[in-house]
Simulated assay, not measured.
Amino acid sequence: MKLSMKSNCFFFIFFFLIAVLLSCQAPPEEPLQIGYIDWPGYEILYLAQQKDFFQEEKAPILLKDFSSFSDLRKALQLGRLDGAAMSINEMLLARLGEEYRVVFVLNVSQGADGIVGQHEFQSIRNLKHKRVGVELTGLGGYLLARALEIADMEISEVIRVNMTATIEAYTAFSERKVDAVVTFEPILSRLVTEQGGKILFTSREIPDEIINVLIFHKDALKYRRDDCLRVLRGYLKAREFWKKEPDQAIAIMARRERVSPDYFRQSLNGLLIPDLSTNLTYFGLSDTENYFLESIKNFQSFMEENDLPYGPVYFENLLNDLKRHEQFS
């Protein structure tokens, strides 16, 4: 009887200690929430998720899709995201620089953003007093202003109609509610091939002015730096997979964009998608000057000339921590 009581007491203490130890363990980290909009240059993030490259790197990440930059901007400004994929121009416009840091260049637009007019329009100058669909709070407003500036026109010479650059732009154009739209791939190509539109201007005419980057919140970089690095490693694995198995990778990415692989492949023609070694050059870590400085200065000058408010942009050096992963470059 005494032995039985001792045994029961022993097991009680044993399980009590186990329960205490388990309760002392830190709960699993919440995933880093990364926001992005539909854009071919961001789909390598989706590819990394679908091919389990984030999981292989033990990167706790949750991708959150937004229908427009306006919605993405609101989520960032409210602190609901740990990071995002967006252009530096949009970051300046949204004045996110105090809270978020640029860590990696995902792509540079070299024709993937543009202005499409109805078939009867031959140039930007033909849009005088015409209706142009554009997302005013996003990159589209800047692209339209630059196109008009190059055409020696004022922004007041066109009628701007605020709308998202994707489905709303496609619908408004196809129903001829607007004379032109500011959009990006794959909508850009679809409006030409499916609706007979004519490309009037693209980002190819303003090289290196639209740089799309990955940003992280400063707190994520301070307290979860290793997790941020794991996200980058997963992304770089996906980029390497795309280079080695382009047909399979494009099929996966095109499915999320809801276009054919041929459309998606064409969309990528207007993008430069840099590797790690190129990013080291961009960030001035390869005995070169910071790639962004002149582009940002030009953008800031443009904003000041047009009396438009903008915020600062700050960079965080995660890339030196990745340099040992030379197989990705």
Rank of each mutant, 00 (worst) to 15 (best):
residue 104 F to K: 04
residue 120 E to F: 13
residue 103 V to I: 13
residue 294 E to C: 07
residue 93 L to D: 09
residue 156 S to Q: 12
residue 135 E to I: 04
residue 64 K to Q: 15
residue 293 L to A: 13
residue 48 A to N: 00
residue 85 A to I: 05
residue 13 I to N: 09
residue 304 E to F: 00
residue 269 N to D: 13
residue 262 D to G: 01
residue 238 A to E: 12
residue 158 V to K: 07
residue 77 Q to G: 10
residue 179 D to W: 04
residue 268 L to F: 08
residue 17 L to C: 08
residue 296 I to N: 06
residue 308 L to K: 14
residue 122 Q to P: 00
residue 268 L to Q: 10
residue 322 L to C: 13
residue 201 F to H: 07
residue 176 R to V: 09
residue 3 L to H: 09
residue 278 T to M: 06
residue 121 F to T: 07
residue 291 Y to V: 07
residue 119 H to K: 14
residue 210 I to V: 14
residue 32 L to C: 09
residue 124 I to K: 06
residue 24 C to E: 00
residue 76 L to A: 11
residue 166 T to W: 01
residue 129 H to K: 15
residue 79 G to N: 07
residue 104 F to L: 08
residue 264 F to R: 01
residue 78 L to R: 14
residue 169 A to N: 04
residue 180 A to S: 11
residue 26 A to R: 13
residue 203 S to Q: 02
residue 185 E to G: 03
residue 70 S to E: 14
residue 280 L to Y: 08
residue 150 I to Y: 03
residue 197 G to D: 12
residue 155 I to P: 04
residue 73 R to E: 15
residue 139 L to M: 11
residue 274 P to I: 09
residue 156 S to M: 05
residue 202 T to L: 12
residue 48 A to M: 08
residue 93 L to G: 05
residue 263 Y to M: 10
residue 137 T to Q: 11
residue 32 L to K: 07
residue 173 F to N: 01
residue 128 K to M: 08
residue 135 E to M: 08
residue 328 F to K: 03
residue 229 L to Y: 10
residue 115 I to F: 00
residue 220 A to L: 02
residue 19 A to E: 10
residue 55 Q to A: 15
residue 292 F to I: 03
residue 288 T to C: 03
residue 242 W to H: 11
residue 106 L to E: 11
residue 119 H to A: 15
residue 3 L to Q: 15
residue 5 M to L: 07
residue 322 L to H: 10
residue 237 K to P: 00
residue 295 S to V: 12
residue 111 G to V: 04
residue 282 Y to L: 07
residue 173 F to W: 03
residue 228 C to S: 15
residue 238 A to C: 14
residue 195 Q to A: 15
residue 315 F to R: 06
residue 121 F to L: 13
residue 250 I to Q: 12
residue 39 W to C: 02
residue 266 Q to F: 10
residue 43 E to V: 02
residue 256 R to G: 04
residue 79 G to K: 04
residue 313 V to F: 04
residue 309 P to A: 10
residue 239 R to W: 05
residue 135 E to S: 07
residue 61 I to N: 02
residue 91 M to K: 14
residue 243 K to V: 06
residue 173 F to A: 05
residue 79 G to S: 03
residue 247 D to V: 02
residue 15 F to I: 12
residue 108 V to F: 03
residue 72 L to S: 14
residue 111 G to P: 08
residue 296 I to P: 09
residue 117 G to K: 01
residue 280 L to N: 06
residue 309 P to Q: 08
residue 267 S to I: 05
residue 150 I to L: 11
